[in-house]
Structure formats: C-alpha cells, structure tokens
Nucleic acid binder design. Structure first.
Lengths: 342, 342
DNA sequence: GAATGGGACTTTACCGGTTGAGGAAAGCGC
DNA sequence: GCGCTTTCCTCAACCGGTAAAGTCCCATTC
C-alpha cells in the first residue's frame, strides 16, 4: 500500500548528513568515515531505501541494463532449447554485476536494428548482445554507427569490426562428417538450418568441403527453417529416395529436427541406427530423452551465453574490439549412430 | 562513433521552440498547433533524437518496463517450451504499448520476492508478472506490501488478493481422466510436476477425485521436478510394475516428460498406444514431432501470456484486483492414446 | 605561528526530461 | 473598444540521484 516515496534525501536526513554523503556511501567511494558510513547504511535499512536506478543512470549516464533481441518466429523459439540455455548463461554473469536483461522478440533483423537504435538513443540499455548473424547484417553497420557497445555472437567474418564470440562450426561439421565416414558411411546428408543465417552458410560450405575431401559421393544437404516440421519433411524426402541415393547417415543443425527425424524413421519402419544413423546438434537434454538416445555435436550453451555476457562487459567498459572463440562442439556418440548395415 | 548527445534542448532550439513544447509534441498532448508539432517532429527526425526514457521516467515516475522472474533450474527451463511461448505472448502485447520486458532467472521464490522489491524500490519496473505459485507464496505478501502492480499467473486460491490469470486445471485433469476411462482404461497413472507448485497440488487432488468418481481402482500418481529424466524414471517404475498394477494409461504434466515416457516405452519394447496410452500436457509442437504423435491436453500458451500482459496493464493503470480465467485446456487426441489391449 | 595538507563532509550544478503555472496574441460577443 | 475565452507556447521548478568544487577542522611541518 505504502508507495515507497523514500528518497536519498530522507535517508540523508535520518542519518544527519547530506545526500552527497549518502551517495558516496552507497557507491563505496572514499571520503567518509566508517562510523558515518555505518550510520547511513543503518538509516537506509530502517527506511527500506534503495537507490532509484533511473535517477542514477540519468546523472551518471551509465545504464545497468543490456538488451537482447531474438529474431525467430515464436513457434520455433519455444522449442529451441538453445535460447533459454543461452539466456540463462547470460543471466548468470549479468546477475553478478547487478545488471538486468531487456528481452525482446522481433520479426526481422531490420526491426532489430531499429530497436537497438531506439534503446540506445533512449538510454534504455548500456549494451547489447546480437545473435543469429546473416550476410551483410544491418546490425553491424547500425551498432558501429551508433557506437553502441555490443557483443556479436557469430563468426568474425560475419560481424565486421564488432567484438565477437563464436564457435568454430566449420571444424565441428568436419568432425561430424569424418566420424560418420569413419563408421563406414558413404552417403551422408545434412539437414541444415535457415539458409539466411551466416553460420548455416559456413556449415554448409564446410560440409561440402569435408565430404569432398573424404571422397563421399552421396553428400546431400538441404536448408530448413529449423522447425521440427521442416526437419521431418527433409528427413522424409531423404529417406524415401531410391536406395542408391538414400543416405545412411543424417546430420541435423539442431536437436529438434533430429528428434523429428527420429520419429520419421520410426514412422517409416526404419531402425535407428541400424538402417540410418542420426546426429544432432547443440545437444540439449532432449537428446538423452529419446529412444535411441541421440548422438550429437555437443557444446556448453550456458557457458557460451556466459562468455558472451562477459565479453559484453568488456566492450561496455571500453575494451576495444576482439574476437573470442569458445570451445568447438565435440562429438558425443550415443545410440543413434553406428556403422551402416552392409 | 558519434555518441548521440542530442537532447530535447537541441531539438527545441532547432525547431525554434521551448523544450516544453517538444515534450508536448512527443507525448501527443494538446496545446500545440499542427504546424509547430510538424516542425518539431521534423527537427527531431533530422537530429535523430529519441526521448531519453530514463529522464522521462524519472520525472513522470512511470516506468515502461515490466519484470518477469522465472524460478526453475536452467537445465529444465531450456526444455520447457511453455516459458518461451508464454514470453512471446507477453511480448506481443508489451510491444504494442512500447513496453519492455526485464527478465531474470532466479533460484527461489524468496530470491524472487527480494528481486521484485529491489526492482520496484529502484524504480526499474512498473509492474511484474508472477508465475509458478506455491502454497503460502511469499510473493503474494511482498507484492501487497509494496503496492507493486502485478498479475499473478495462478489459481485465485493461491494468489491471495492479487489480480490473477489462470487456467482451470482441475477441470482439465478431470476431462483427461474421463477420456481415458471412456476408452476403457481402468488403471490410469499420472506423472505430475513439482509437488511444491500450487497447480500441481490442485491437479493431483483433481486426479484423485476424478479417479474415485469413476471408480478407477488403479489410479496412481507421482510428483517429479518436471524434467525429462524424472519423467523417464517415473514412467519406468510404473511400467515395470507387476501386471495387475501396471497402468495402461499415463497422463503427464508437461510435454517433455511425455516425450521421455514415450522413449521409455520404446526402450522396454512396449508399443504405444497398444500396450500403454500416453497423454501429454501443454501441447507444444513437440507433441507432433514424435512417433506416434502425442495426444495432449492442449492450450494456447501464447494467448495465455498475452492475456497476462493485458491484465497487468490493467493493474498498472489502477484497475482493482480481479480474477481472469483463460480457456481450459482441451483434449487433443492423437496417436498415443487408444483403448487398452484386452 | 603561518603555511601546508588532507580527511570528512557539504554545496551546487547538472543529467534530460515533465508539468503546472503563467503570459501573449487572436477571436468573440456586445 | 473592452473584457473574456481560447489557443499556443514559455518558464521554472521539480524528479532523485551523481560528481566536481568548496568548506572546515585538525594535525604537521618548518
């Protein structure tokens, strides 16, 4: 009921000091005796005062909020364990710095670029995390132009002069293909993510290169929108191909599509991994909840988010641009991959 | 590079008016001629000015940010499609009001109560959305004491005097049980969510009542932590029970556990729905990506989030407490439910 | 004993908007 | 031509903090 109208002035009055002193105490700056400091904290505690962050950031012109806009259809977002895990990693670091996360779902990168400008101009955020880069991403130019401190989650080749945090997807794709080839697979397919995304392009190229390098003749890949439906559709079309073309192993660009692929195989009466091997990507817990369990290219998404947040703090505090690779996804074999049936 | 140091004063100067006039124009308040208004907008556009929201909320003491804290282990969060869909529903309404969402993951409701107080005292949020109520939830008292406008997502019996938005879970559970009984099942089990959550308690009671009412002798339910692992464990222990006790149908409290249950059945060589029927809850797209597809108690989670946000705006603008039911989940039969084998 | 220095605060000028109290000019009735 | 509204706009006081400059007092130092 009592709308807390307690301000720094009340605390100052109660502690018998000026508001400047209260400010010094709460920002742990030197220039106050221990006794006074203590008196101020006591007064604040008694009144239940907390500094008004709005006022603080107005006068100190630093904002303890970072923005994150995600640009994927709501439908897919919910299913994609990646984002929530990423966000939770980001949070874990932000929390340490008493920093908050402003989240927004957008429909296009153009909208996102506009939003970032708005947020920054309106002093709503002190920095931002950018994900899902595409070729010639408008956000690169926007962030540079605005001088907005950001961390770009994506390969340096996509993020221009922005500070970036990225995984080496090309190497991971190569490892995946090598593994399947080592098992004896010759016809390997890949169900990729959205073609517009930069990392999809890179994975696609890496897949091609790896397949060619290993002399795999039947390499075949398609792009999807990352949704389970699309994954199912792609899998169905691959598995219904005439036997000489039919892949014996399929790599997916996320978990969901791999799960959907597993269902398609079951629905077609094919046994995994006897008739076809499946390899997922990202490796959320979902991969351990299926039967058979899904082999996957696994990485620490939570840690990825945390690293992104740490890097963002670096950018906000003026550290110049840089490129921060995080560990490459590693192959985690489970029940869905095996040598092809002879 | 050019840190945008454009302020209302610059715009005023350029348009040849006072800053008060600019303020009036940008808040669409009366008292300005069309011509002046136009001149001001032009000047603002030319300078690329956007009002500093920090300054605005300091002087107008209204904050266009709402808080949402989610209290579940990161592990589970990622997998739970519910939250992202809910958030996307919330967003869809917030966006219309040019309002932002402050998100935070917390480890306990106590921490959340503290956070809300901090956010509110620090004028970081204008209101909050509270989810996952438990019995005697400390957030109820906290929100009341602070006078913080909130919308509580949970049954009115759990949310005290707070404005609430809720689904009638008891009715939905009853419908689920009735459906399975109508198919001929006599031994129906339920894999519930976290026992500490209020809605779990209500669903548990409703399940018991429904089973008793229908004279089902083998009703059996357990509580879990909502994780896929726990769902798998529960399913395994149910399906390994001696035949007279073994349930022929299992209802799950979310999607993930149902998916895990499906895998367990497969791993045990049981056929779904021939040997056992499974019924999921929430019905994200995941239910359509399995084989067989999962029958589910289905509701519009996106719409649920949107309604919560709308109701919150009501609370913020001073509308008194109220209780807003949203549509009860409805049964959506798919491939995982059938009459029991005789 | 005057000059120096520094610790402990206070003062005061912002930060960039909003808001309510005016004030000048134009329109209107008589 | 005078008072009275309206319309349109200016002024100045906030909002609740921060930060740089200023004040005071006391201990040193020469």
């Amino acid at each position: 009921m009592t709308t807390s109208r307690v301000t720094i002035k009340d605390v100052a009055a109660r502690a018998g000091v000026s508001k400047g002193a209260v400010s010094l105490a709460f920002n742990r700056k030197p220039g106050l005796s221990e006794a006074t400091r203590e008196r101020i904290f006591t007064a604040a505690r008694e009144l239940g005062w907390e500094p008004n962050l709005t006022a603080r950031s107005l006068s100190s012109s630093r904002v303890d909020v970072v923005g994150l806009a995600i640009c994927r259809p709501a439908r897919m977002l919910g299913l994609e364990p990646f984002y929530m895990e990423f966000v939770s990693g980001v949070e874990s670091v932000l929390t340490e710095h008493a920093c908050a996360l402003l989240l927004r779902l957008v429909r296009s990168v153009e909208e996102e670029a506009g939003l970032l400008e708005s947020w920054w101009r309106g002093r709503q955020i002190g920095g931002a995390i950018l994900v899902d880069f595409r070729a010639d991403d408008p956000r690169v130019v926007a962030a540079e132009r605005l001088g907005l401190p950001v961390v770009a989650v994506g390969h340096p080749s996509l993020t221009g002069s922005l500070t970036s945090v990225w995984t080496d997807d090309a190497t991971a794709v190569t490892e995946a293909v090598r593994y399947l080839a080592a098992l004896g697979h010759r016809r390997v397919a890949r169900v990729g993510g959205a073609a517009a995304l930069g990392h999809t392009v890179m994975r696609t190229a890496a897949f091609d290169a790896a397949a060619r390098g290993l002399g795999l003749t039947g390499a075949w890949q398609v792009a999807t929108d990352y949704s389970g439906e699309a994954g199912a559709r792609a899998t169905r079309s691959m598995l219904t191909a005439a036997p000489p073309d039919r892949p014996t192993a399929i790599v997916y660009d996320n978990d969901i599509m791999a799960v959907a692929g597993l269902a398609v195989a079951a629905e077609m009466g094919l046994s995994v991994p006897r008739d076809v091997s499946l390899l997922a990507w990202d490796d959320s817990q979902l991969c351990r909840l299926t039967h058979p369990t899904l082999s996957a290219m696994s990485h620490d998404v939570h840690g990825f988010g945390a690293e992104a947040a740490r890097t963002l703090f670096g950018a906000i505090t003026g550290r110049g641009p840089g490129s921060h690779p995080v560990p490459t996804p590693v192959l985690t074999p489970r029940g869905s991959t095996a040598p092809p049936k002879v």
